[in-house]
Protein backbone atom coordinates (compact mmCIF):
# COMPACT_ATOMS: atom_id res chain seq x y z
CA UNK A 1 0.00 0.00 0.00
CA UNK A 2 2.50 2.55 1.11
CA UNK A 3 5.45 3.08 -1.12
CA UNK A 4 6.76 6.40 0.06
CA UNK A 5 10.10 7.10 1.52
CA UNK A 6 10.16 6.67 5.24
CA UNK A 7 11.99 9.73 6.09
CA UNK A 8 13.12 12.83 4.33
CA UNK A 9 16.80 12.94 3.57
CA UNK A 10 18.54 15.24 5.95
CA UNK A 11 16.28 14.83 8.94
CA UNK A 12 18.51 14.24 11.88
CA UNK A 13 17.65 10.61 12.22
CA UNK A 14 17.41 9.80 8.57
CA UNK A 15 20.60 7.85 8.19
CA UNK A 16 19.48 5.11 10.44
CA UNK A 17 16.10 5.18 8.84
CA UNK A 18 17.22 4.58 5.33
CA UNK A 19 20.01 2.24 6.18
CA UNK A 20 17.72 0.55 8.65
CA UNK A 21 15.36 -0.28 5.89
CA UNK A 22 18.01 -1.83 3.73
CA UNK A 23 19.25 -3.72 6.72
CA UNK A 24 16.00 -5.56 6.97
CA UNK A 25 15.89 -6.32 3.33
CA UNK A 26 19.28 -7.91 3.66
CA UNK A 27 18.15 -10.01 6.57
CA UNK A 28 15.21 -11.18 4.58
CA UNK A 29 17.26 -12.49 1.71
CA UNK A 30 19.54 -14.14 4.15
CA UNK A 31 16.75 -15.82 5.96
CA UNK A 32 15.56 -17.64 2.90
CA UNK A 33 18.55 -19.87 3.32
CA UNK A 34 17.59 -21.26 6.65
CA UNK A 35 15.37 -19.76 9.26
CA UNK A 36 11.64 -19.77 8.96
CA UNK A 37 10.92 -16.52 10.64
CA UNK A 38 11.90 -13.86 13.08
CA UNK A 39 10.76 -10.59 14.51
CA UNK A 40 12.24 -7.57 12.82
CA UNK A 41 12.04 -4.00 13.96
CA UNK A 42 11.54 -0.77 12.09
CA UNK A 43 13.63 1.62 14.13
CA UNK A 44 12.17 4.63 12.35
CA UNK A 45 8.82 3.95 13.99
CA UNK A 46 9.96 2.40 17.25
CA UNK A 47 8.71 4.86 19.83
CA UNK A 48 10.68 3.53 22.76
CA UNK A 49 7.66 2.82 24.92
CA UNK A 50 9.06 -0.51 26.07
CA UNK A 51 5.66 -2.12 25.81
CA UNK A 52 7.23 -4.99 23.92
CA UNK A 53 9.31 -5.68 26.99
CA UNK A 54 6.27 -5.50 29.22
CA UNK A 55 4.26 -7.87 27.10
CA UNK A 56 7.18 -10.20 26.49
CA UNK A 57 7.47 -10.53 30.22
CA UNK A 58 3.76 -11.24 30.43
CA UNK A 59 4.02 -13.83 27.70
CA UNK A 60 6.64 -15.62 29.73
CA UNK A 61 4.89 -15.31 33.05
CA UNK A 62 2.96 -18.05 34.68
CA UNK A 63 -0.44 -16.43 34.56
CA UNK A 64 -0.13 -14.46 31.31
CA UNK A 65 -2.12 -11.78 33.09
CA UNK A 66 -0.25 -8.52 33.07
CA UNK A 67 -1.27 -7.30 36.48
CA UNK A 68 -0.92 -10.66 38.15
CA UNK A 69 2.42 -11.26 36.49
CA UNK A 70 3.92 -8.00 37.62
CA UNK A 71 2.32 -7.52 40.99
CA UNK A 72 1.52 -10.90 42.39
CA UNK A 73 3.73 -13.61 40.93
CA UNK A 74 6.74 -14.71 42.95
CA UNK A 75 9.28 -14.52 40.20
CA UNK A 76 9.68 -11.16 38.61
CA UNK A 77 8.64 -11.45 34.97
CA UNK A 78 11.50 -10.75 32.63
CA UNK A 79 11.43 -9.77 29.00
CA UNK A 80 13.37 -11.56 26.31
CA UNK A 81 13.47 -8.44 24.25
CA UNK A 82 15.53 -5.35 24.91
CA UNK A 83 14.75 -1.86 23.80
CA UNK A 84 18.00 -0.20 22.94
CA UNK A 85 17.67 3.44 23.67
CA UNK A 86 19.75 6.46 22.91
CA UNK A 87 17.19 9.11 22.22
CA UNK A 88 15.91 9.84 19.73
CA UNK A 89 16.92 6.45 18.44
CA UNK A 90 15.25 3.46 19.97
CA UNK A 91 14.69 -0.01 18.71
CA UNK A 92 13.56 -3.27 20.20
CA UNK A 93 15.92 -6.10 19.75
CA UNK A 94 15.73 -9.80 20.32
CA UNK A 95 17.20 -13.10 19.16
CA UNK A 96 17.87 -13.05 15.43
CA UNK A 97 17.60 -16.83 15.20
CA UNK A 98 20.83 -16.92 13.21
CA UNK A 99 21.43 -19.44 10.54
CA UNK A 100 24.63 -20.61 12.18
CA UNK A 101 24.12 -19.43 15.70
CA UNK A 102 27.24 -18.76 17.69
CA UNK A 103 25.42 -19.29 20.94
CA UNK A 104 24.73 -22.88 20.00
CA UNK A 105 28.42 -23.51 19.35
CA UNK A 106 29.37 -21.94 22.63
CA UNK A 107 26.80 -23.71 24.75
CA UNK A 108 28.60 -26.16 27.01
CA UNK A 109 25.51 -28.02 28.10
CA UNK A 110 23.61 -28.50 24.88
CA UNK A 111 20.81 -26.31 26.18
CA UNK A 112 20.87 -24.14 23.08
CA UNK A 113 19.98 -25.83 19.84
CA UNK A 114 18.93 -24.82 16.40
CA UNK A 115 15.69 -26.51 15.51
CA UNK A 116 16.30 -27.88 12.03
CA UNK A 117 12.61 -27.79 11.15
CA UNK A 118 11.49 -24.43 12.43
CA UNK A 119 14.88 -22.79 12.20
CA UNK A 120 14.37 -21.31 15.64
CA UNK A 121 17.21 -21.20 18.11
CA UNK A 122 15.72 -22.92 21.12
CA UNK A 123 16.78 -22.84 24.69
CA UNK A 124 16.13 -25.67 27.12
CA UNK A 125 16.20 -24.09 30.54
CA UNK A 126 16.32 -27.53 32.18
CA UNK A 127 19.73 -28.09 30.65
CA UNK A 128 21.06 -24.57 31.08
CA UNK A 129 23.65 -24.25 33.83
CA UNK A 130 24.13 -20.53 33.55
CA UNK A 131 27.71 -20.49 32.35
CA UNK A 132 26.94 -17.43 30.21
CA UNK A 133 29.24 -18.48 27.38
CA UNK A 134 26.41 -17.62 25.04
CA UNK A 135 26.12 -14.16 26.56
CA UNK A 136 29.74 -13.62 25.75
CA UNK A 137 29.51 -14.85 22.22
CA UNK A 138 26.17 -13.61 20.91
CA UNK A 139 27.17 -10.74 18.64
CA UNK A 140 23.78 -9.11 18.95
CA UNK A 141 23.58 -9.06 22.71
CA UNK A 142 20.31 -10.88 22.48
CA UNK A 143 20.85 -13.42 25.21
CA UNK A 144 19.70 -12.05 28.50
CA UNK A 145 20.36 -13.21 32.03
CA UNK A 146 17.84 -14.22 34.63
CA UNK A 147 19.83 -13.33 37.72
CA UNK A 148 17.33 -14.95 40.01
CA UNK A 149 17.47 -18.34 38.39
CA UNK A 150 21.05 -17.93 37.24
CA UNK A 151 20.27 -18.98 33.77
CA UNK A 152 19.83 -17.30 30.46
CA UNK A 153 16.61 -16.31 28.77
CA UNK A 154 16.06 -15.54 25.14
CA UNK A 155 13.33 -14.97 22.59
CA UNK A 156 11.43 -18.16 21.88
CA UNK A 157 9.05 -16.43 19.46
CA UNK A 158 6.31 -17.00 22.00
CA UNK A 159 6.34 -20.73 21.44
CA UNK A 160 3.01 -22.21 22.39
CA UNK A 161 1.22 -18.88 22.45
CA UNK A 162 -1.27 -17.69 19.92
CA UNK A 163 0.48 -14.51 18.99
CA UNK A 164 3.93 -13.09 19.25
CA UNK A 165 3.27 -10.77 22.14
CA UNK A 166 5.82 -8.14 21.24
CA UNK A 167 4.46 -7.92 17.72
CA UNK A 168 0.80 -7.95 18.57
CA UNK A 169 1.17 -5.40 21.36
CA UNK A 170 3.43 -2.91 19.63
CA UNK A 171 1.28 0.20 19.49
CA UNK A 172 3.05 1.51 16.43
CA UNK A 173 3.56 -1.75 14.57
CA UNK A 174 7.28 -1.24 14.69
CA UNK A 175 7.79 -4.93 15.24
CA UNK A 176 6.88 -7.33 12.49
CA UNK A 177 7.14 -11.05 12.30
CA UNK A 178 8.54 -11.99 8.92
CA UNK A 179 8.36 -15.42 7.49
CA UNK A 180 9.94 -16.70 4.34
Amino acid sequence: MFTGQWSPPGVCCDTYMSSGLCFFIRLNTHERMGTMGKVVVKPEVCIGCHLCEVWCAVAHSKSKNIIKAFLYEDTKPLPRITVEENLPLTFAWQCRHCQEPNCVTACISGALTKNPVSGHVEHDSLKCVGCYSCVLICPYGCILIDEQKREIIKCDLCAGLETKYCVSHCPNEALIYVEN
Binding site: T15, C22, R26, E84, N86, R96, E100, P139
Partner: peptide, 23 residues
Amino acid sequence: FGYVNMPDELRWQLLKDEVILGV
Protein backbone atom coordinates in the same frame (compact mmCIF):
# COMPACT_ATOMS: atom_id res chain seq x y z
CA PHE B 1 26.05 -0.22 26.18
CA GLY B 2 24.42 -1.47 23.02
CA TYR B 3 24.24 -1.00 19.31
CA VAL B 4 22.26 2.14 19.90
CA ASN B 5 25.37 3.84 21.26
CA MET B 6 27.33 3.39 18.09
CA PRO B 7 27.44 5.78 15.17
CA ASP B 8 24.56 5.15 12.79
CA GLU B 9 26.55 3.84 9.90
CA LEU B 10 28.59 1.45 11.99
CA ARG B 11 25.56 0.14 13.77
CA TRP B 12 23.68 -0.88 10.67
CA GLN B 13 26.84 -2.16 9.09
CA LEU B 14 27.40 -4.50 12.00
CA LEU B 15 23.82 -5.57 12.19
CA LYS B 16 23.41 -6.28 8.55
CA ASP B 17 26.47 -8.52 8.33
CA GLU B 18 25.77 -12.09 7.59
CA VAL B 19 24.92 -14.03 10.64
CA ILE B 20 27.23 -16.92 9.81
CA LEU B 21 29.64 -16.20 12.55
CA GLY B 22 32.96 -17.79 13.23
CA VAL B 23 33.37 -18.71 9.62
